[in-house]
């Protein structure tokens, strides 16, 4: 009956450090793999122009996906972001065109347009958040509804056609998309800034911690004196703000908006988040993973453009496959022995 050394809580240890490293580095390694593949297929892949193109394209989805990381980490989902982007684009164009008569086609007009975008983004996010929390309706349903609403609003504003930005404003607004600082395109800089801000907010502040807690177990969060509804609503507001920022960069690119603007962006954003290692059921989120996920999705399309081996029309199929494989690899179950 001699006393032995204690070893408490040893149950169910995960199978070592390799697992965790793989999870954290997986998306990054996959991206490196894609870049190597791209280079092998076509040397032009690594050219400055092409890389700049990839990152600039990735910025739209990436910025939206940073917002989506908050929503999903806190256990929610936002399906309305693509429609929201289209609606905000349309509203910006209509209002800026209307202001030309009074303010002229100057910087003031563009700034007002940007302000409008921010207000609309925050407002739309708040609507999604408040209706789902106060109304106690599943976020999936609420944002499915607002997705339809925003989409039809932009179609209505454009009268079924296309809204085009005033030619003179385009000239003023153009640098926001096409400009660069020391060779780095402005959208890429904005993307980076949003990602850094998102990282800090999610990982270093009480707010971020509360997002993790709510996504992990809402009841525990409630019993920990967290204003669950407030935090959840804020995640949708952050999402709305991110959509607005993405839209501000998007509008000068084409200078137009129509009912087909931003179609399927919500799914690409969610895909980027999931590829990055954030858990769809909430409780665990990773901003850098999301950034890499967004870049991966764009890179796939880019590589398919550079090769004839696979038709560009199969872009969606390849992306879909990558998403499924990525999640499968991250789960790690395939290596672990079945245990219950």
């Amino acid at each position: 009956m001699s006393s032995v050394e204690r070893n408490e809580a040893p149950t169910k240890k995960t199978s070592g450090g390799f697992n965790i490293d793989f999870k954290a580095l997986g998306p990054f390694l996959a991206l490196v793999g894609l870049f190597i593949l791209g280079t092998l297929i076509n040397e032009a892949f690594l050219s400055g122009g092409n890389l700049s193109n990839i990152f600039t394209r990735a910025a739209f989805i990436g910025i939206i996906a940073v917002g989506a990381t908050f929503v999903i980490t806190a256990g929610g989902i936002d399906l309305s972001v693509g429609s929201m982007a289209a609606f905000i684009s349309g509203a910006m164009i209509v209002v800026m065109n209307g202001l030309v008569a009074t303010l002229g086609a100057g910087v003031e007009t563009v700034l007002l347009g940007i302000l409008l975008s921010v207000v609309l983004g925050i407002g739309a996010g708040a609507v999604n958040g408040l209706v789902s929390t106060k109304g106690k309706i599943e976020a999936f349903i609420v944002t499915l509804g607002t997705m339809g609403i925003y989409r039809s609003l932009v179609t209505y504003m454009a009268d079924g056609g296309t809204l085009s930005l005033d030619f003179d404003i385009r000239g003023v607004y153009r640098p926001v998309y096409y400009g660069d600082v020391m060779g780095i395109p402005i959208p890429v800089l904005v993307f980076f800034a949003v990602a850094v801000a998102g990282y800090v907010l999610l990982n270093m502040t009480p707010f971020g911690r509360k997002c993790f807690a709510i996504g992990s177990n809402e009841q525990v969060a409630r019993y920990s004196a967290i204003h669950v509804d407030r935090v959840k609503t804020l995640t949708y507001v952050i999402q709305g703000l991110c959509v607005s920022i993405a839209t501000i960069i998007y509008v000068p690119r084409l200078g137009s908006a129509s009912s087909s603007t931003g179609v399927l962006w919500e799914l690409e954003a969610i895909a980027a988040v999931i590829i990055g290692g954030t858990m769809l059921k909430g409780g665990y989120g990773r901003i850098w993973g999301t950034v890499i996920g967004a870049i991966m999705l764009t890179t796939i399309g880019n590589i398919l453009n550079l090769t004839d081996a696979i038709s560009n029309y199969l872009n969606g199929a390849v992306q879909g496959l990558i998403i499924i494989v990525a999640v499968f690899l991250q789960r790690g179950d395939w290596r672990r022995k079945k245990s219950k």
């Binding site: 800090v200 270093m204 502040t205 009480p206 911690r209 509360k210 993790f212 807690a213 992990s216 177990n217 009841q219 525990v220 969060a221 409630r222 019993y223 920990s224 004196a225 967290i226 409780g283 665990y284």
Partner: peptide
């Protein structure tokens, strides 16, 4: 069910109820 975040380690669990004590802006 309502006490602890089972999928997390001890640190975030310990401080969750008194988060403001560990920083208002940054934790």
């Amino acid at each position: 069910g309502s006490g602890l975040l089972l999928n997390m380690d001890m640190r975030p669990n310990l401080t969750l109820l008194a988060l403001e004590k560990f920083g208002r802006v940054f934790l």
